[in-house]
Each structure stands twice: as C-alpha cells, then as structure tokens.
Design a protein around this nucleic acid. Sequence first.
DNA 1: ACTACATTATCCAAAAATTGTCAAGTCTAT
DNA 2: ATAGACTTGACAATTTTTGGATAATGTAGT
Lengths: 91, 91
Amino acid sequence: MIGDRIRELREKNNVLLRHLAAQLDMDTGMLSKMERGDRFFRKEDIEALARIFKLSEEELLTLWLADKIIKTISDEKYQEQALKLALKSIK
Amino acid sequence: MIGDRIRELREKNNVLLRHLAAQLDMDTGMLSKMERGDRFFRKEDIEALARIFKLSEEELLTLWLADKIIKTISDEKYQEQALKLALKSIK
DNA sequence: ACTACATTATCCAAAAATTGTCAAGTCTAT
DNA sequence: ATAGACTTGACAATTTTTGGATAATGTAGT
C-alpha cells in the first residue's frame, strides 16, 4: 500500500531503485522489498520520501501506519470490531 | 483494556490470581502483568478465559485485538486517519 | 508490631521477530 | 551474449518480546 505509492512516485519521476536507495542510504534489494511490501519502511525513510517527492508527510505516514495496523490484525478474527473499538478509544 | 476486563471478571468471581494463573498454566506474576497491561495475553489464554468465565470469545478477542492495534499505533501521528484507512481497506 | 497471604516490581536469560547485507537470480532490451 | 534494472533467498546482526525466579510491597487479621 505505502509501497505501491512509493513505486508509483518513483516511476512517475523516472528514478531508479538504486538511485532512490542511495538517497535513502539503504540497500537496493531492501528498497525493492519495501516497495513490494515484503519489508516495512522505517519511519525516517517515509519522512525522507515526503521531502524527496515534495508531498505531505501526512499522506505517506498515514499510508505507512495503516499498513502496520493491517499487519497486526491480519489472520485475526473480529478485525472490523477491533478497529472500530480502537478508533473509539483513541478519541 | 482486556486486562481490566479480566480483572473485573476474576474479582467478581472471587478468584485469586494464583488460582486463575494455575488454570491457565502460567506464572502468577505473569498474569498480574497481563491484567495490568504490561504484557499481552496469548490468544489461547483469551480463548481459555472465555470458557472459564462463560463469555463469548468474540467479546474478549475483540478487546484483545483492539489492545494490539492500540499498541502498534501508540506514539504515532495520524492514528485516526490510519485507522479509518485500515478499516476501509479490510472491507 | 507480627504473620500470613495476595499482588507487584525487578532482573535476567531464552526465544522470537525484525532488519541489514550480500550474492545469485530473473527479465528485458540491445 | 551482455548490460542494466530489479527481485529473491540465505544468513548474520540487532532489537523486541517473553518467561521465570525472586525480592519487594501491600493488606487484613490478631
């Protein structure tokens, strides 16, 4: 999800994986996995990507956090109810 | 949250920590931590607790999963937006 | 205050999950 | 066949989580 968005941005801007990886100071293979959703981005990377692509941190961090949430509930029952309850309890 | 509910149930039924811990085959100190939210229950424990207190698994597992969600988003920005996005994406 | 019992706190090792690195692999175009 | 872009897998390094032992604290009764 956040990975798809980053790949989309990267391709739209004609940036190679290894170039973007260099900007983020990470291994190319790692970035490949992150874009494909095999690994998580670190939060600092997301913040750097917002700067690089001149987007609001809000958009990207929201996508990133949603991915984390989805990972923690995957394979569990009562996902929707738990999400709603969590939503209620943070307000 | 789930811990509060378990403690409430345990006290309402006049069960001691060490007795309930024994039923769950765990250390007393561990159960104390779980009730106070320092540690997570294992899912099997929640299922066992639903049987012990004759409640629906749904109620307890929902509380338990909500706790996990809350933990993964704690200290992060854009919690509400991410939760809403996650909610949308599981449907 | 002393005892007995219930609960909590602290510390540390074991286990598990996450992360990073590297090399080998696929795929496409020339 | 070679080169370039990307992907994958294996493994090591690191971090987080977990369990258990034991010490400390709290609490009620005498």
